[in-house]
Simulated scan of single mutants.
Amino acid sequence: MMAAVENVERAQSQTVTALLALRDLIVNGELKSGDRISELVMVERIGVSRTPLRTALVKLEQEGLIEEIPSGGYAVKAFSEADVFDAIEIRGTLEGLAARYAAERGVAQMRLAELRRCVETIDNTIHTDHMNDADFQTYLHANERFHALLAELSGSPALIREIERVARLPFASASAFVLAEASLPESQRILIIANEHHRAVVEAIENRESARAEAIMREHARLSHRNLMLAMRSQKTLDLVPGSALIRRRA
């Protein structure tokens, strides 16, 4: 019995290892759009057996990073600009629904205080003359924490799963454009506007203004739309967006 449990745990651990390694290879551009994923090569490269590797490939297909090919196996997926905009819009719609649910169902002051601490941390980070690497890491953590908390406060496990699923697409996550934003002349203004959205949605949730809370988070996602358009003006800037190598740009 103990041996069986250990075998299951070992297989699960190898699946997680394979999943993280494959996702990293794709997001970093080492595996490019259209590349066929060879199981034998990946088994050797990652150091896992074929069964957990195949399980990881199925999970990556569900996430939308790879797709089955007619000849068998999987290839890295390519995304059009429209695909990316749609993914961002879907995240905004889902986070808007999370904010609506939180406002309608009510949130304890202690949980609202957690959101406010994220807002304050971001404020202290972005209102500086020059953000260094440590500042960006602080911003990144606080921003991701804010969005994760917002999903939790919806009180809907089904909605939380869907938000996590769309956010696994590297360019659709809440922090996808942080490094790209840093290289833009408008960076500080964009970050300030984004954090004002955070502040406003906390206020709307506290006041039980569900429609307002939903609208704010949908508008918040539109900032990512704008940031993508700005990033696309320069390949150097676009390269700072995780998974940008998967985006098939229009001529």
Rank of each mutant, 00 (worst) to 15 (best):
G64D: 03
S13I: 11
T55L: 14
A82T: 14
A99S: 10
E63I: 14
H198Y: 04
G34F: 08
A99G: 02
E152R: 09
D24R: 12
N28A: 10
G64I: 03
A251S: 13
L223N: 06
Q235A: 15
A221P: 03
A176C: 09
M131W: 11
A134N: 09
I88G: 02
A78S: 15
K59W: 12
M217G: 03
S156P: 05
A167P: 01
I192Y: 00
D129W: 02
A11T: 10
P157T: 10
G155L: 07
H141C: 08
I122C: 00
F177V: 06
L25Q: 07
E186L: 01
Q12A: 12
R36W: 09
V16Y: 07
S187F: 00
E181F: 00
I163M: 07
D35F: 04
E39M: 13
S33Y: 10
A221N: 01
T138S: 15
D239R: 14
E186M: 00
A21Q: 09
I205S: 02
T121F: 03
Q137Y: 08
E9M: 14
E164T: 08
I247Q: 05
R233K: 11
N227W: 01
E95A: 04
L150I: 04
V16P: 08
I88A: 03
S71I: 11
R168Y: 03
S183E: 12
R165G: 05
I88M: 08
N7T: 14
V119D: 00
L230Q: 01
I37N: 08
D123T: 08
T17N: 12
G34I: 08
K236V: 12
R111M: 13
L65Q: 01
I66V: 15
R91H: 12
L246Q: 02
L179H: 15
K59D: 10
L57F: 05
R248S: 13
Q235R: 15
S156H: 08
L246S: 03
D129Y: 10
A3I: 13
I163P: 04
R23D: 00
N207P: 04
P242F: 07
G96L: 03
I216S: 04
R199Q: 12
